[in-house]
Design a protein around this nucleic acid. Structure first.
Length: 909
RNA sequence: GCCCGAGUGGCGGAAUGGUAGACGCGAUGGACUCAAAAUCCAUUGUCCCUUAAAGGCGUGGGGGUUCGAGUCCCCCCUCGGGCACCA
């Protein structure tokens, strides 16, 4: 009976599907554990071996937790709305739903072959109306909520309205509210709603014909497609994520996420504690107070000018009559630059003098006000005080426009560059003189506050999320317009389903504007659709109760599953999905729809699997290829060759000739009778011909081998290259494991009692697994299996007492072979319902330990002692031995250091 | 520029401050075989050496702490990731 993975794997995959082995049912008698993978966007290219890495890791953990007695929820679904399907539709005219459905089918069949323990009854698709009903519902809740800064949570808008009516709130008095028209009321509320419509500077991408969120833009280009992005003022739907900035920041602490990921989120949220200071300004004799934001009030005695952002509303008022022309010219110049140009020219300094002056509130000194694009309108107040001696950007500006540089820290050199460090002793700074910088920051803040010149202020870099996309393949907004005022679609009319349109081609207007009868109760509906992150923000909640037609998730289901215990996915979502989801969850928490305020308790970021590309070397101007070791003798071009026709870096020359027509008559110059290819580690991609399809690996070696090998490659969190040639090792391991049970057709397993030596092998392994699985150290776990199986093979041990627990241990990693052997061992149930074997420490311990005895770190002799010996006993034995031995040679033993179970060191003098 | 993370054989990678290189790949030699595949055994960091014994050197570089450092501390170099006029 050979290890026939093909029949074993299909047999058990059918069994699991048929028996719904992994169906999760709420069961209050068992502890729950929720393991989630970031659901994939089903692209047309299908999965390559890099994609399942995280899925395998989480599947192993799920199966392990099940063995440990947990009720495990392990679902999967698809992030199915998105741009590529729409782009494809534009090119081919095919409905995005069709391509999406096809791609999902492909993904599903690829995943099924790997033997995941998903509960497929809970599958969700973000493009399914039954799913996006709840995306739209959440949007309506956000539209109908405002953020109460006192309660520090979202509340229904109706509460805000009653405040307007009774006591008034902020600048809205009861009189003003009562007198307001319907349109004015709508505008006022828009300033408070969590989901609101507002004019803002947005990332407009002409190439895609839509606006994009900040995390969808990188280096001035769209992440999808790489088209240039420009800043444009537009009225768009937005989510008031910024209201949650402080909570998003502070609750990071209680999350079990990697430090680097938390750090990324902290940077993205960008809290900075500073001070707002009022500066009196004079423009053509008129006075106006201008507020600036700074984190370094301590440097206020070094202020030599002020700067306004070009987009700031203050520019108009603070431009003197005599400077209008120059300023207008500058603003025009700034405006026509694209975002990309701005970034590219980040080093060049531009600006224009406004003609007006500010008064330093502490010194009374008059300073010029400039306008420059290095100050951003969207951050702080859009106006700054410039301290060129201690801020590198102000310094560059001062040097370019020949403005004074006034150092205020003792002994600092500002002849070449500014001194930005927050250290040193203050000087030229009035009452701050002599203080340390850190001291001075606080003293200056206190002073400014006590004199009424300003106040402490915390700013965040986190912006509200722009929520409209001028695209077709996304969730429609449940919003209609009456007299230009947006109104929500009634909750009972959800889902508002995506209409059919005749053509997907971009025409400059939103595709939904072309839909016939795109109206609600006779009024026109919003024509934008929601962005990709809308559907992925609460999908983990939907898995808890995926078929509920009455609620996103019932409070029973939510109360049982609570939140995701383990979330596995890539770091690329650090500042997108993982921020939006946390925001979305906190919002639902505020309104009492969910019971936990954080969605993902523990997060593991799987690394990328890189491709290992192979090259052949063509002699220039010929069709002759020279082997890698000989190429230096020729003038060659390096050409990527498909890794699937290369074995151990040796080219299959016939396959190469058949690969592409232009190589059909290729000639080769060989070394040692072989053609050796060069190699390099690169991103796994079609164009590098280094993509390895998991289906192929399943065909040749089986899913269990694939699973083990992906884990064996290295730590889950780390990026590492895929190299198919190493896979034979784990495949051999599985064959060896099989041979412990079978010798050809002979069933070897006996009920004989295991020897202490055999038990030790088993319990060493159990101990190792316990520790390493919890730490996601799966590569060392797989190694431990190999060692155990090698030892048992050497012992010729085929005893049930040893092998049965071993099958259970292996089942999370290689579930198919484990199920098969479990059944052959006479069990009727799936191995998934077995229990993780209990660890008996005494059986794992060695009887005797050999202690190397070292003198001042140099090994001299060894002593054999029982492992159970205490450090004191070890020391006594060593002293006795050392004194009788010649090693000490008359030297005094100063001390004896005993490291339990490892080593003994004697310090001599 | 700023903030993280990482540098260990030919390769992927192991090592709670305690015998560096586990485990696997690759390579070399051997067994089995008419032969191949499969399987098994041995060797495999490096230097001196015919070999062996014994030893020296070895975790990016330089210093330090320690009886003892891949691991901790300081400086530097290289690579990867994130942020980038955020005042």
């Amino acid at each position: 009976m050979e290890y026939d993975f093909k029949s074993i794997e299909s047999k058990w995959q059918n069994y699991w599907a048929g028996h719904k082995t992994f169906k999760a049912v709420e069961d209050a008698s068992k502890p729950k554990y929720y393991v989630l993978d970031m659901f994939p966007y089903p692209s047309g290219a299908g999965l390559h071996v890099g994609h399942p890495l995280g899925y395998i890791a989480s599947d192993i953990y799920s199966r392990y937790k099940r063995l440990k007695g947990f009720n495990v929820l392990h679902p999967m679904g698809y992030d199915a709305f998105g741009l590529p399907a729409e782009q494809y539709a534009i090119q081919t005219g095919q409905h995005p739903e069709k391509t999406t459905t096809d791609n999902i089918a492909r993904y599903r069949s690829q995943m099924d072959r790997i033997g995941f323990s998903y509960d497929w009854d809970r599958e969700v698709r973000t493009c399914d109306p039954e799913f996006y009903k709840w995306t739209q519902w959440a949007f309506l809740k956000m539209f109908d909520s405002w953020y109460d800064p006192v309660a520090d949570k979202a509340r229904p808008v109706s509460e805000l309205v009653s405040r307007f009516e009774s006591t008034g709130y902020e600048d809205v008095t009861p009189e003003l509210w009562a007198a307001a028209t319907e349109k004015e009321k709508s505008d006022i509320l828009m300033r408070y709603r969590i989901a609101y419509q507002g004019e803002t500077s947005v990332n407009w991408c002409e190439g895609l014909g839509t606006v994009l969120a900040n995390d969808e833009v990188k280096d001035g280009l769209s992440v999808r497609g790489g088209f240039p992005v420009e800043q444009k003022k537009m009225t768009q739907w937005q989510l008031r994520v910024s209201a949650y900035a402080e909570r998003l920041l502070s609750s990071l602490e209680k999350l079990d996420w990697s430090d680097s990921l938390k750090e990324m989120q902290r940077n993205w949220i960008g809290r900075s504690d500073g001070t707002e200071v009022e500066f009196d300004t004079v423009c053509d004799g008129k006075h106006k107070s201008v507020t600036i934001f700074t984190t370094r009030v301590d440097t206020i005695f070094g202020v030599s000018f002020m700067v306004l952002a070009p987009e700031s509303e203050l520019v108009e008022e603070l431009t003197s009559a005599g400077r209008r022309e120059e300023v207008a010219a500058y603003l025009k110049e700034v405006k026509k630059k694209t975002e990309r140009e701005r970034i590219a020219e980040t080093k060049s300094v531009t600006g224009v003098f406004s003609g007006s002056y500010g008064i330093n509130p502490l010194t009374g000194e008059q300073i010029p006000i400039w306008i420059s694009e290095y100050v951003l309108a969207g951050y702080g107040t859009g106006a700054i005080m410039a301290v060129p001696a201690h801020d590198s950007r102000d310094y560059a500006f001062a040097r370019k426009f020949k403005l004074p540089v006034v150092p205020i820290i003792e002994g600092c050199d500002v002849s070449e560059a500014s001194f930005d460090a927050k250290e040193g002793r203050m000087c030229n700074s009035g009452f701050l003189d002599g203080m340390d910088v850190k001291e001075a920051i606080e003293a200056a803040k206190d002073y400014v506050e006590s004199k009424g010149l300003g106040r402490r202020k915390t700013n965040f870099r986190l912006r509200d999320a722009i929520f409209s996309r001028q695209r077709y393949w996304g969730e429609p907004f449940p919003i209609y317009y009456k007299d230009g005022i947006p109104y929500p679609v009634a909750e009972e009319d959800l889902p508002l389903t995506l209409p059919e349109i005749s053509s997907y081609k971009p025409t400059g207007e939103a595709p939904l504007a072309r839909a016939e009868n795109w109206s609600y109760k006779g009024y026109p509906l919003e024509t934008s659709t929601m962005p990709g992150f809308a559907g992925s923000s609460a999908y983990y909640l939907r898995y808890m109760d995926p078929h509920n037609g009455e609620a996103l998730v019932s409070s029973d289901a939510n109360g049982y599953w609570r939140s995701v215990d383990l979330y596995v996915g890539g770091t690329e979502h650090a500042t997108g999905h993982l921020i939006y989801s946390r925001f979305w969850n906190k919002f639902l928490y505020d309104l009492g729809y969910v019971c936990e305020d954080e969605p993902f308790r523990k997060l593991v970021n799987q690394g990328m699997i890189q491709g290992r590309s192979n090259f052949v070397y063509r002699i220039v101007g010929t069709n002759t290829f020279v082997s890698e070791g000989l190429r230096k003798d020729y003038d060659t071009t390096e050409i990527h060759v498909d890794v699937n026709i290369v074995y151990n870096d040796k080219l299959d020359m016939d396959a190469f000739r058949a690969w592409r027509p232009e190589f059909a008559d290729a000639e080769f110059i060989l070394e040692d009778g072989e053609y050796r290819c060069g190699w390099a580690i690169e991103k796994m991609s079609k164009s590098m011909y280094n993509v390895v399809n998991p289906d192929l690996i399943c065909d040749t070696y089986g899913a269990d081998t694939l699973r083990l090998y992906e884990m064996f490659l290295g730590p889950v969190e780390q990026s590492k290259p895929w190299d198919t040639k190493g896979i034979d090792g784990v495949n051999r391991f599985l064959k060896k494991f099989w041979r412990l049970f079978f010798n050809r057709d002979e069933w070897l397993v006996s009920d004989e009692k295991a020897s202490p030596e055999e038990l030790k092998v088993l319990h060493k392994l159990i101990g190792k697994e316990q520790e390493d699985i919890e730490l996601f150290s799966y590569n060392t776990t797989v190694s431990a299996f190999m060692i155990a199986v090698n030892e048992l093979t050497a012992l010729k041990c085929s005893k049930r007492e040893i092998l049965e627990p071993l099958v259970v241990l292996l089942s999370p990693f290689a579930p198919h072979i484990s199920e098969e052997l479990w059944q052959r061992l006479g069990h009727g149930d799936s191995v998934s319902f077995a229990s993780f074997p209990e660890f008996i420490p005494a059986l794992a311990a060695e009887d005797n330990v050999t202690y190397p005895v070292q003198f001042n770190g140099k090994m001299r002799f060894t002593v054999d002692l029982p492992r159970s010996a205490s450090p004191v006993e070890v020391e006594a034995a060593v002293r006795a031995d050392a004194n009788t031995a010649r090693y000490v040679g008359g030297q005094n033993i100063v001390k004896v250091i005993v490291v339990p179970g490892r080593i003994v060191n004697i310090v001599v003098k």
